[in-house]
Design a protein around this nucleic acid. Structure first.
Lengths: 110, 110
DNA sequence: CGATTGCATAACCATATGGTTGAATATATC
DNA sequence: GATATATTCAACCATATGGTTATGCAATCG
């Protein structure tokens, strides 16, 4: 059930680019063609196409080809896996937030 | 309150490497010196030092210098920020998981 | 003082990444 | 069949990344 390390590498690296995160944002609302996904950016279609390929290899995007048009949809599973990895650190940041809250409530104790 | 896009880039990219994730894992349990963090890996100290610098620039590691020794500790805040970003997609994967569960319970309906 | 330790920095190398343009491919349209 | 559309692919370029070894430097040890 646990995600392979190499696949987690691909997911986190795919998320480490603002163009790709923006594409995922649009796909979270609706399916889009490659052309539609590329349109908001001022890079070439070929460059956008490479970003989509990166997302696909990370498992974040599924592609369906109908005729000459490629339809992309978001596959949220790798996001859930990345979230699982992050959540194993959750107690650390909640502990810190709790300490911050306590301080804001009773600064004299610090 | 929202994390800068560029900082989110740095955090996700920092997480996209197994050496750095392993370092964070150790730091989640205990503070460590640069030498201690480097020791488990079969790369040079200089290479490990660069990874630590990357983590530091992503805000994930804080360094305290005492004498000639550098002590590193985990700062979980950027992990919380990355988690916040991911959680904005949560409804998508829970919806999908719910559908899968429903199917496993009543396969005939599919 | 001299040697050793803990670490950063510099120079270098190979490969990856993110972009470009131009050509190829397949499907639609006239 | 000819042309237009949707997209990939190939070649190329600049910069980033992840590694190396060698060097430097401050702090500690003997």
């Amino acid at each position: 059930m646990v995600m392979q390390s190499l696949q987690l590498d691909r997911v986190f690296r795919a998320l480490g680019d603002p163009t790709r995160r923006a594409m995922l944002g649009r796909l979270s609302r609706q399916e889009h063609t490659v052309g539609e996904l590329a349109e908001p950016f001022k890079m070439s279609l070929a460059a956008a196409s490479k970003h989509i390929k990166t997302l696909e290899q990370a498992g974040l995007v599924r592609r369906t080809v109908r005729g000459r048009t490629h339809y992309c949809q978001l596959n949220p599973q790798p996001l859930a896996d990345a979230n699982d990895w992050l959540r194993s650190y959750e107690r650390l940041w909640t502990k810190r937030l709790a300490a911050l809250e306590a301080f804001l409530r009773h600064p004299e104790k610090e």
